[in-house]
Structures are given as C-alpha cells and as structure tokens.
Write a protein that binds this DNA or RNA. Structure first.
Lengths: 142, 142
DNA sequence: CGACTTGTAACTATAATGGTTACGGATGGA
DNA sequence: TCCATCCGTAACCATTATAGTTACAAGTCG
C-alpha cells in the first residue's frame, strides 16, 4: 500500500540509538547502517525530534540520542510520529459527485470502518517496543 | 501513509454495483459518481475482476456486476484484491548494511510485529461488508 | 582556532498515481 | 447487415512523493 519506508527507517534508527544507550550517534554512522545518505537520516530524525522521541547535539562529539527509555517507546508512538495526521487509507483524490447518493455519503460511511481498522493496527503496534526490537536483533545476532 | 485512493475507490464502486443488484452498470456511470475518467474505473475494476469480485460484459447493454452477494463481500476481501502482495509497511528501499548487526537483522526482527499489525487491521476489516457500507450510505441519504 | 556535526536549501532522478485520448473488438438490437 | 454501445488496453502526460546528493551556514567543544 505504500512505497514508503519511513516507518521502517525510523524503527531502524531508534534501535541503533537504543543500542548505544546515552552515547550520541552521528548521522554518518547511522547512514552507514541504513545504507543511505546522512542527509536522509537527518531529515528523518528531524521529524522524530519534533515528536520528542530523540534529541540532537551539534558540534564535536555531538549526534543523536533517544529522548527516553526504549522500554517505554512503542512502535505505535513511532508510527504516529512518522504518519503525523496522514490517514492509513487515502480518500478520493477528487471529491466524489455530490449529486449521486453513494458519492455524497460514501466518505462518511467509510469513516467508521476505516478508523476502526487503523485503531486495530495501532493497538497491535502498542505491544512492541523499540527495546523489544533491539532484543530481537540481538537474538538473531547470536 | 499512502497517497493512494485505490481502496476507497474500490469500495465506492462495489457499493454502486451492490445498489443496482443484477443490473449492469457502465464505467461511464460509475466514473460520474466517483468524479473521474471511465478509463480509471475500468483499470480499477480490471483488478477486482482478476480477484473474481466483479464480472464485466462488453457491448450494448453491458457493464459491470458484482460477482457475488454483497452481504458476503467483506472489506478485507476488497483490501486484499487491491493490495495484492504489497506489504502494509514498506521495508528499506536499499538493503541495509549487512556488516552492522542491526542492519543485518532489522528486517527479520520487524517481520513479526509488522505481520501482526497487518493481521489486526485485516481482522477488523472483516467485520464490515459492502452491504453494510450500502446501508450506511442509505441511512445518511435519509 | 580548528575539527566536527547538525540544519537546511537546492537540485536531480525515479516511480507511483491518476487523468486523457484513441482505437480495437465484442455485443445485441433494429 | 448495420450501428450504437461498451469494455480492453495502449500510449502519453502532469503531478506528487520519495529519496539521493552536493553544498554550505551555524553551532559546539577541546
């Protein structure tokens, strides 16, 4: 449904930060792990900082740190920071025909089932934390 | 998460077909309700026909019909027809660095929570049928 | 002072999405 | 048979999202 990797990248980066505890990590180091450009990382992290999930420090010895305990950082919180106000399912790109009964009311009729589906997904994301992801990575790393 | 209206369009069209029962509906009529071009509708319905949700009939008096009972057509089935194999959350656009423990295992570590979230969403979509949507539209149309 | 790092603008490439025109082919009634 | 109708699909274009890259200003710390 999406050609978009923002959510995955965000979790990847936060997992790296969780692994290094309070030690700041540079965008260059992160970019090497994600296999992309440091600017892409800074852009992604700017959004997470706006959501108070991470903090940054410029200059020598600077970098990025988790703002809180990874045990308390759920994938739902990460999802909301990345998705912002964007709905899970997009509506019509142009408004449907208001002279057709279906066109006039379809968006209202879909609001409830769409919201329920989105809520169910987020509730499930609430069951996993960044700390859980880090443990899963460590388990596979042996 | 998606700039994509395929799912909404599909439900909209199927609701129109459910309303007209066995009477075939032309792509031109559907396009007028959706407020788009008939070719866009034909493209969308071609996918739904491949999933056996609708059937089409060319020539005079032709058009599109639901293949089954709208009471049995859940939004989950519509979602799967529209999303095909595409995952709800995209992974990295370029493979992460295999020399980093996190980069090497992050995708595997995310497989389980991502699948659970997608399943939770689909389970919720299973609770609503196209017939339900049509009733919701009728209720609002007064 | 100087090495380092973030912040951000600017530009480019690629791909997805959707809108449009055009036309071939099938259907069914007059 | 003829013809209006309607699907099937190719082709092309515009718009937008994404992300990759270079460049440079500004802040930080030893």
């Amino acid at each position: 449904m999406s050609t978009n990797s923002r959510f995955t990248i965000a979790i990847h980066v936060l997992t790296l930060l969780a692994r290094s505890r309070a030690e700041p990590v540079t965008s260059e180091y992160i970019a090497a792990s994600v296999n992309t450009n440091p600017v892409v990382i800074r852009r992604a992290l700017a959004g997470l900082r706006a959501a108070r999930l991470v903090s940054s420090q410029g200059g020598n010895g600077g970098g990025w740190r988790l703002a809180g305990d990874p045990e308390d950082l759920t994938l739902r919180a990460v999802y909301r920071a990345v998705a912002k106000d964007e709905a899970l399912f997009g509506l019509h790109s142009r408004p449907p025909n208001p002279n057709c009964p279906v066109g006039r009311h379809i968006q209202d009729a879909l609001a409830s089932p769409f919201a329920a589906a989105s809520r169910a997904m987020e509730d499930e994301l609430d069951h996993t934390t960044v700390a859980d992801v880090l443990r899963a990575v460590h388990a596979r790393a042996g």
